[in-house]
Design a protein around this nucleic acid. Structure first.
Lengths: 343, 343
DNA sequence: CCTTTAAATTTACGCGCGTAAATTATAATT
DNA sequence: AATTATAATTTACGCGCGTAAATTTAAAGG
């Protein structure tokens, strides 16, 4: 078995006793040939070592089986995890995922799109950087390639958007924090990189007002994607100042909260909701590291399995129907309250 | 500018006034054409929107410009960071990086190799899973494609190996811990996934013996790549048992240490080297999160910039010289002691 | 069994580019 | 300016596959 090396589809057609066009059809879609033919091909495939030349295939097919996946920051375990989920769904659907990270850099994000253009992808799943993104360039890309956005909403770019319900999730944790202690202040970056952050801020303000409390925003300086560093640095400053209007701090995301908790620890402040605790801290996202902070981080989870699945499915559907979306579909998944030690 | 859409190299040859074979030569290697010709091509390139069809190029070239990069676990920020460094060096050298993660799964690792085979890469940079890797399959791949291993040494697979000097690094931190307090016990997994872990264990034992102390290994159960979870679970067990032979624990890697620190925190044990501290904990790797643990983690850094650079350069050199390595080159980079709060 | 319908085959062409050989043009050297 | 080395051009073929049209074969239905 696997004796003679088959070098092209012609040879494989000979040894399998099937005509080349039928073989070609099979590789394009195994279900498009008769069952008896399919089994004959697959038997030959297990007997001889042949796989079609991917370059020759893609050169002539009007659409490749490539699916681009772009995330803003691969070194963030959250995005690594969601990218992996998406990869699996894409493979399941018979496509080839191509994973690219933008490293928090708008130029790299556009570079990734250019890169994807050259491989003529059937579609793209993209989590944009957000505020820093070159929207015009992305829009131009979306015109040419069916694109589904996830995680970060960008105007009305792409055929669809799948993301997290920041309003529901933020309202829920605000409500929880108010119910179980002092009303929280909101700790965030002054100029957040991400539209999710904007929505979380707004929902915090709305929820606090609705509950009869004055919202307090702590908007700190900082650029880029080194959120833990910013949370630590500015957390240290804020906690040393003793200017906090509450003993409860809701951070705009878990990575800021991780830095903030580290700052609190170094200042000797005990964080939690029991007696003897000076501070409560909560986050947002349920970051993979949130269960190992000291104390463990109370947060709201994103249903990233659902987000990954839905966005992949939406794109696959778009590709298979060969139609562009008549109207832009937006899907949001609710978060769940994850109660841990910090609040 | 960018008016007429150029659809192939023939058209671009016409509008630029250069013959197609010369254009082809230019795209293969810009330096292979005369300078005056190069500038003419580049001027035309900025005037017309054309880029060669990557599939047609790769179909006919005996070697593509693709470089595969395989890491064992993309959701680990350490590997994400080193992969990114490598990507940049690869791009700089004029190649196209293709990043794949094995998700801690040997089957996926082999799948990644199969995947890479179909794109006929010029070379591959691979950090194998280690013990779980299917060495035979990897060896077969290395026979066909120039491959440089990094991070994890695997017998004598690949053309070269570039990694961390575990012996130097472990000896250094052992020495430091002994000098500044009680001799450490070594906390590790019973069946480590990674050859680095084996070397660290051995060096710990050797160093302790050389310094006149009895080595103590704490070898805990646990499978897979969820090191923080294992460190937390087994750390909790070990600390509750009160069976530790020393107040100083050297963890085999930072991710175990992160879990261990979380366990110590939850048990109310103060970690650090000052008075009133019950425990010292140190790690190994200088993981991106090590600066945000509570307390911050004392560890030994890997020089992963040097590792990334050297492994990429080695591969590029191999590819350009079109020779397989006459002998296997192994390069190790020393670690640096990173003194923080935990030890 | 014959008819209808679906699927496989044959034939033939095209995709966009690499590349080799022979020729011609250009640049460098004396 | 003549010579030589180097680079560009022309011509022509091939890569491995997609795909369309016409034809033949096989399956399904009565």
């Amino acid at each position: 078995m696997r004796e003679p090396k088959i070098k092209n589809m012609d040879e494989f057609a000979s040894v399998s006793g099937i005509s080349r066009p039928t073989i070609s059809k099979y590789f394009n879609d195994p279900d498009s040939v008769r069952k008896s033919t399919r089994t004959r091909i697959e038997r030959a495939l297990s007997e001889f070592d042949y796989r079609p030349n991917i370059y020759a295939m893609n050169q002539n097919r009007r659409l490749t089986k490539n699916i681009g996946i772009i995330v803003p920051y691969l070194a963030d375990p959250f995005f690594a995890a969601i990218a992996r989920k998406i990869e699996n769904f894409v493979i399941e659907a018979g496509f080839r995922p191509v994973l690219l990270g933008s490293h928090g850099n708008p130029a790299q994000e556009i570079g990734n799109l250019e890169n994807l253009r050259t491989i003529k992808p059937a579609g793209v799943l993209m989590a944009p950087l957000g505020r820093a993104s070159d929207k015009q360039a992305i829009a131009a890309f979306c015109d040419d390639v069916p694109t589904v956005l996830f995680d970060s909403h960008l105007d009305d770019l792409g055929e669809a958007f799948v993301g997290h319900n920041n309003v529901q999730a933020t309202a829920m944790i605000c409500d929880y924090l108010v119910r179980t202690g002092e009303p929280p202040v909101f700790f965030e970056m002054k100029t957040p990189t991400n539209p999710n952050a904007i929505r979380r801020r707004k929902t915090y303000c709305d929820t606090m007002t609705a509950l009869g409390f004055a919202p307090h925003l702590i908007q700190v300086d900082g650029e880029g994607w080194d959120f833990e560093e910013i949370g630590f640095r500015e957390g240290t400053r804020v906690l040393s100042d003793h200017t906090l209007q509450s003993n409860t701090v809701l951070c705009s995301n878990d990575r800021l909260a991780i830095g903030f908790l580290s700052a609190a620890y170094q200042l000797g402040l005990r964080v939690g909701l029991g007696d003897g605790c000076a501070l409560r801290v909560a986050g947002h996202d349920d970051h993979p590291f949130a269960r190992y902070t000291c104390p463990t981080l109370t947060t709201v989870s994103q249903d990233y399995t659902a987000i990954a699945k839905k966005s992949a499915e939406t794109l696959m559907h778009l590709i298979e129907s060969e139609t562009r979306a008549e109207s832009r579909i937006e899907t949001l998944f609710d978060g769940k309250l994850i109660m841990r030690g910090s609040a």
